[in-house]
Design a protein around this nucleic acid. Structure first.
Length: 304
DNA sequence: CACTAAACCTGGGAGC
DNA sequence: TGCTCCCAGGTTTAGT
């Protein structure tokens, strides 16, 4: 899925279109996406009906984010939690917009191609008709989920957020708090960043990018880190993530912003998806390995 | 308890 | 053109 910068950039691009708007109607085309999370989900017509009925006529008051989850807040206190997993998209089409506009769309100073001209398409699984346009949930791999909760309390009690660590864009993400949480953990950095329990929002792209920026290899065990390195990792996280949000996130394959355009941060990747290529800093050949079961790229010269 | 592999899916790219 | 194999922004669950 999109990692934190992608989810946050999507939230920021979607929010102005949908705030204060009312959902007129909902169509669930793939019922398993609105039932349980995780594996072996059963298609459930009861869940589909509940989802469509409960969300109809609701006004959207807020769109929030916790870790990589998006949370829609409605006028009656109910909530909708959306997790995009690997390939989920939320694309908004304003009413009466010229559908096949030829003018280039500009994001971050660069013209971007429209990637999904025709909506709905065969990967559109949920459609929300709003008063001012249509919101499409598309998901090629169907790993994502959209869960309805009747209240904030029921969402809080769902267990969804129980194990999540610090929000890296929040004030509470201080060096002290990061250090305290990090040093409780065992294992290598890649694994620790992946499990979301110290700091949330990093995935395979930003775990590698953060380690590169901090000049530390992703395979380094937490216990081997020097204080300066912990400091550099903290600095890397609070530097890179906002830059990536500002660039609209990284579009690797499926990720899109709410208007159907792509994020630009992939151009600025130093290591992700660059195994075997030259390091942008020292020109050494970047090493491609597996750490914590995931493809990992680092510079054997820059990173210790 | 810690770590790894499999599972959930479809599609794109590489190699033959 | 087409087939097979491997890989993919995540997370949970089963297995060793």
């Amino acid at each position: 899925m999109p990692e934190l910068p992608e989810v946050e950039a999507l939230r920021l691009s979607l929010q102005p279109h949908i705030l204060r708007q009312t959902i007129k109607q909902v169509e669930v085309r793939l019922p398993k996406l609105v039932s349980a999370k995780g594996t072996a989900r059963q298609a459930s017509s009861a869940k589909k009906d509940e989802f469509e009925n409960k969300l109809s006529d609701r006004q959207i008051l807020n769109l929030r984010r916790r870790s990589k989850n998006l949370i829609f807040e409605f006028d009656n206190g109910s909530r909708l939690l959306v997790h995009l997993k690997m390939s989920g998209q939320l694309v908004f089409q304003p009413k009466e917009s010229s559908q096949n506009q030829l003018e280039p769309i500009v994001w971050g100073g660069h013209p971007i191609e429209l990637s999904e001209k025709e909506l709905p398409n065969k990967h559109t699984h949920i459609i929300f008709w709003l008063s001012n346009g249509t919101l499409y949930y598309n998901d090629v791999r169907q790993f994502g989920y959209l869960l309805y909760y009747p209240s904030q309390k029921s969402l809080d009690q769902s267990g969804h957020f129980d194990k999540l660590g610090l929000e890296p864009l929040d004030k509470e993400f201080t060096l002290e708090n990061f250090k305290t949480a990090l040093l409780k953990k065992k294992g290598n950095l890649k694994k620790v960043f992946f499990d979301q329990e110290v700091v949330v929002g990093l995935g395979n792209i930003y775990a590698d990018e953060v380690c590169f920026w901090a000049k530390v290899r992703p395979s380094r065990s937490v216990s081997s880190l020097k204080p300066k390195e912990v400091e550099a990792l903290h600095e890397a996280i609070i530097t890179i993530l906002p830059l990536a949000v500002k660039a609209g996130g990284s579009s690797v394959a499926n990720y899109l912003l709410a208007d159907g355009t792509k994020g630009n941060y992939a151009k600025q990747h130093f290591v992700y998806n660059r195994g075997g290529l030259e390091c942008k800093i020292c020109a050494a050949t970047l090493s491609k390995t597996k750490v914590a079961g995931r493809t990992t790229v680092y510079c054997p010269n820059c990173q210790k």
